[in-house]
Write a protein that binds this DNA or RNA. Sequence first.
DNA 1: TCGTAATTGAGATACAGTCTCAATTATACC
DNA 2: GGTATAATTGAGACTGTATCTCAATTACGA
Lengths: 145, 145
Amino acid sequence: MNDYEIEFKNYLKERGLKFTPERALILKAVFSLHKHFDIDQLWEKLHKKDNRLSRATIYRTLPLLLDCNLIQETLRCQGRVRYEHIFGHQHHDHMVCLKCGKVTEFREEKIEKLQEEVCKRYNFKSVEHRLGIRGYCQKCQKKLR
Amino acid sequence: MNDYEIEFKNYLKERGLKFTPERALILKAVFSLHKHFDIDQLWEKLHKKDNRLSRATIYRTLPLLLDCNLIQETLRCQGRVRYEHIFGHQHHDHMVCLKCGKVTEFREEKIEKLQEEVCKRYNFKSVEHRLGIRGYCQKCQKKLR
DNA sequence: TCGTAATTGAGATACAGTCTCAATTATACC
DNA sequence: GGTATAATTGAGACTGTATCTCAATTACGA
Ligand SMILES: [Mn+2]
Ligand SMILES: [Mn+2]
Ligand SMILES: [Zn+2]
Ligand SMILES: [Zn+2]
């Protein structure tokens, strides 16, 4: 059994919730998608395997996965919420190309540290943060010229 | 005439668009709100002065104000897009309290610099960035204890 | 195996945001 | 000032994402 499955089962058990086949399928799909995804992309992937699984169940399951830190919201794109699995991955931030939509992940230790300093300065207890840089990727800059 | 009004008029003129009384009202309201606001708060404020002004006109005007950098989107709150006027103000980032919703603005020069470095490293041409830290403000931390 | 509370799918509903269209109006030009 | 014309407006219809309802089903502890 995968680590993320153990994690999710514990989370559910502690709260008296059930580990259903539907939730198992969704969990598996979430960790087999290795890019950022939105609900429709997830539904399409799941629909192929079990065409009874309803959108409502996906909408009901994602908040659970968020709450136990298996996934997180990333930048919104055209009004849609996008997600990525984070369990087993290091925290990182994002750059998004305004032309082609390409997402680049980066981690800058110094920025992480400075954020902690800022929080200390304001007596703010940080839970999470999100840094998104919008602009143009290398390829799209060339095309614009 | 205010600087922001000159700015907006120039923007409109360059594009063959009109400076209408409705747009003037919206612009004025946007710069008289000194906190982050959403469309409904803006509509309420405007409705008092001119109850004919329609929501559609507000929805049509805000993208113009965004495009000429008079305002910017800030963090979303409960599914609603929130805005703040930025013309004449220095760029800053935000901390949001998950309990009381309090927004604290901060500017950390070193973080701004480091972001530029990261962009250079990836040959990414930055247009704008948004850093949001979610957590608990000083008051709400005390209440939780 | 049983009892029960959680969960499900399907469709209804909510609601922010966009679009349509006929009537109105700002502005460039004379 | 007057006129032509393309932009703009309000009202309400419409879209699409996300949530809710409810009867039927099911996971799981005892
Ligand atoms: Mn990522
Ligand atoms: Mn601000
Ligand atoms: Zn690109
Ligand atoms: Zn607070």
